Amino acid sequence: MQKQELGFCGPGLMGAPMIRHLLGAGNTVHVWNRSPAKAEALVADGAQVAATPAEMAQHADVVLLCVADGAAVEQVVFGEHGLLAAAEGKDGQAVRVRRIVDHSSIPPELTRELAARASALGVGWVDAPVSGGVAGAQAGSLAVMAGGTAEDVAEVAPILAAYAARVTHMGGPGAGQTTKLCNQAIVTATVAAIAEAVGLARRSGIDAAKLPEALAGGWADSTLLRTFVPRMTQDGLVPIGALRTFQKDVDTVADAARQTGTPMPVAGAVQQILRLGAAMGLAEADLSGFVDVLQTPRHA
């Protein structure tokens, strides 16, 4: 892979290991985060901290984003000190960036709007949400589902190979985000089902922690089963995300289902479980917190 000068906005649980892989591949990486400490923590790995996204845009040819939601993406790119602020006449500095790769999970409709706005300024946009979680980011084995022009996806694919096992071009702008919604519909429904199974096992007097062993090799076996049963039956494990992230994604699934007239009754039930969890004060709980939402007291 040709070494490049890159930018990365959002070095969080997912972004930080992705940045380390980019640095390990020999790239120059400028990093920015709303809370500077997360960006500064990567200086020891060789990253260079940018004061603002606009400053980053003076140095990087390709900028990658991994931020919280659609509002954050829009602010980072088009805000007062955003990546394309100069291109829109809001900043006096030159813009070097030619492509933006958005790893955030945001609505497909918003992605298409932002991509069109960037294209009008001569900047390509690739929506590239990922699957594989923190473990996949650390291992460099993420699955990337990409939307954008074939040329833009082909240009950035060698960069993404630093932390992705594969990059699949799904179609035009927004197609990557729609694919991620399909992924999240499957993941959240499965994790909810695993939580129900753990609850049933416990109330039936069997050791729920042994479910992955008992179901190994059968149709119920999966990466999610092996990941989440331990998290639902053990204490003290490092969190891999918050339930509020699942809630955001499932709410977006519901919006897409409404816009396209797609019946999704299972996703609707999961949405209500997550809303109940938020009402119970579990929005910041680990993704395995489904089991806590469903553990209602047993009545005689």
Rank of each mutant, 00 (worst) to 15 (best):
V134I: 14
T262S: 06
R226H: 15
A150I: 12
N33Q: 08
T252M: 13
L274W: 08
R20K: 15
Y163V: 10
Q295H: 15
L211E: 00
L181T: 00
S131D: 01
S288E: 05
Q259T: 14
P230N: 09
G174K: 08
D69L: 03
A154N: 01
F290Y: 15
M1P: 13
G147M: 03
C182F: 03
H30L: 14
P36M: 05
W219P: 02
A278T: 13
L84A: 10
E109K: 10
V123Y: 07
R258Q: 14
D255L: 13
L65V: 11
A285H: 14
I19N: 04
I194M: 08
H81W: 09
S131A: 13
A85W: 05
W125V: 09
I159K: 05
R98G: 12
M264K: 00
A135Y: 07
V97C: 14
G79Y: 14
V187A: 07
R226F: 01
V187M: 02
A283I: 07
M170Q: 11
E88H: 13
V191M: 10
Q138R: 15
P230S: 11
G174E: 03
G92A: 09
F78M: 07
Q58H: 01
A192N: 08
T227N: 11
G89K: 04
V198K: 00
R298H: 14
G281D: 10
A39Q: 03
P158S: 10
G124V: 01
Q177P: 12
K210T: 14
D91Q: 09
A300M: 09
L83H: 06
A47S: 02
A157F: 02
Q271P: 04
M145H: 03
Q75S: 13
V123F: 07
N33S: 14
A300I: 12
R244P: 02
A115C: 08
P107S: 07
M232V: 05
V97Q: 07
T52D: 01
G171D: 05
G89P: 03
Y163E: 11
R98T: 09
R231Q: 04
A51R: 14
Q234M: 09
E151Y: 04
V62A: 05
K210R: 15
T52S: 11
T260K: 09
A189G: 09
D292P: 01
R20Q: 13
A72V: 09
S104C: 04
V153W: 00
A157L: 02
A115I: 06
L84C: 11
E74C: 10
V63Q: 04
G26Y: 08
V187Y: 00
A254L: 13
Q184H: 10
Q295K: 15
K3V: 11
D207H: 06
A216L: 05
R166L: 04
K210W: 06
W32L: 08
R275I: 10
M14Q: 10
G82L: 12
S105W: 05
L237R: 07
G124L: 03
E74Y: 12
G218H: 13
H30T: 14
R96K: 15
L211Q: 03
V77W: 04
T28K: 06
P239K: 09
S288I: 09
H103N: 11
A87V: 08
V134T: 13
V63H: 03
L64I: 15
G82M: 11
A50W: 03
